[in-house]
Design a protein around this nucleic acid. Structure first.
Length: 376
DNA sequence: TCTGGGGTCCTAGGACCC
DNA sequence: TCTGGGGTCCTAGGACCC
């Protein structure tokens, strides 16, 4: 299809903003909790994650002192140590983080009944029905920050804007302990100087392809004709173009509907690498156990099983099989995984770096239906 | 340089059906 | 001797997020 035939659709909804959204993000969450528990760490560059003894693994979170050295989430520990040899490392107390997170989300909940928790350390609040304007929203945000600090001694950054994505971007521009409000009429001016990578979803690869067209900031993208953007970067590019030009790219009707879980998975990396097939099967069985247990707690059933294998050269394969109907049997998972694994049985088990199991195509088990079948 | 773990979403090709 | 078109489901891989 040629470009001339392509229809680009701008709806009326995209031109209107009728919501006020607050986004809250806890600052360097895991690292901040560690510092709260052990104040001696406060003045040191600190990372949570990885194995301090073997220096394997990656950075999960780091404090702002560590970020000054160029350290960031996802960076290999060995590289972080090269950037900062006197780095302090802790393994992480994930149960504690989860408890603190729950406590904070409980506080946040008081500020609006329409809330969406997005991970351990972030949440969106719909303030549309709660406040009458952006100034009132700002005052509410200050209150929320004080509330969180008084209870949990942690700081957060807040963005307020007419959509979730803009509120998130707003919060990113003033960290830590920031508060940024972007009103509908200020969107394009606000976006213009920001780096294109500030947009959630624009990662390394997208930034690279944008830079080939001399696009580095949101303003660079905004200036281009949308036809060209669509041609070069496709659907996602066009959506990004609309965003930086101040269009509303969000579906306002169901923006706070909490979505059902789509998959449950577990994967494990072998670090010592002397495993035999037996050891790999021990790991697989244990993963199947936890996954099925989690599925049962959620009262769900599955249709698709996926095996993931990564070799030490980082070559990664996924093999999936879908059943003809929904199922809950762990035995069946094992049988299917066994079949899927056959393809790799001529490989050396010690060359395997990671195995993962995933169930997807999930469906809630209908309790009414269950009781009905008891009668018939 | 060495790359965790739990997720979501997107793309592209192929099978199959009407 | 030339093979439509739309929809749906499945698989594999990859980008990205926290």
């Amino acid at each position: 299809m040629t470009l001339a035939n392509q229809v680009v659709y701008f709806s009326e909804k995209e031109q209107t903003f009728d919501s006020i959204i607050l986004y809250m993000d806890l600052d360097a969450f895991f690292a901040s909790v560690e510092i709260r528990e052990n104040p001696d760490l406060a003045d040191k560059p600190l990372v949570v994650g990885g194995n301090p003894k073997t220096k394997q693994g990656v950075v999960s979170t780091c404090n702002y002192k560590a970020r000054k050295y160029g350290i960031h989430s996802g960076m290999p520990i060995s590289q972080a140590l090269r950037l900062c040899p006197h780095l302090t490392m802790v393994r992480g107390s994930y149960k504690l983080y989860s408890d603190v997170s729950k406590s904070i989300m409980n506080i946040v909940k008081h500020y609006s009944p329409t809330m969406k928790v997005a991970g351990n350390d972030e949440a969106y609040l719909d303030l549309t029905e709660i406040v009458s304007d952006y100034e009132e929203a700002r005052r509410l945000a200050v209150e929320l920050k004080d509330d969180i600090f008084a209870t949990e001694h942690l700081t957060c950054s807040i963005g307020i804007a007419p959509t979730k994505i803009l509120a998130k971007i707003a919060s990113e521009t003033d960290k830590p302990d920031g508060l940024v409000v972007v009103k509908p009429l200020d969107i394009t001016e606000f976006m213009e100087p920001l780096k294109i990578t500030i947009i959630p979803g624009v990662g390394k690869k997208s930034a690279e392809s944008f830079s080939k067209k001399k696009i580095y900031t949101c303003g660079d993208l905004a200036k281009l004709p949308y036809q060209l953007v669509y041609q070069k970067f496709g659907k996602y590019g066009l959506k990004t173009w609309k965003l930086v030009n101040g269009f509303n790219t969000e579906n306002t009707e169901n923006k706070f509907v909490s979505n059902e879980r789509k998959s449950i998975s577990e994967e494990k990396t072998f670090f010592n690498r002397h495993q035999k097939w037996e050891d790999i099967w021990v790991q697989i069985d244990s993963s199947i156990d936890t996954i099925i247990a989690r599925m049962r707690v959620k009262n769900m059933s599955f249709k698709t099983i996926t095996l993931k294998i990564r070799f030490k050269n980082f070559e990664t394969y996924t093999r999936a099989h879908s059943l003809s109907s929904y199922n809950i049997s762990e035995k069946l998972v094992r049988t299917v995984v066994q079949k899927l694994l056959e393809e790799f049985e001529n490989k050396k088990p010690e060359d395997i770096r990671l195995v993962g199991i995933k169930i997807s195509n999930l469906r809630k088990i209908d309790n009414n239906q269950k009781t009905l079948t008891q009668f018939f």
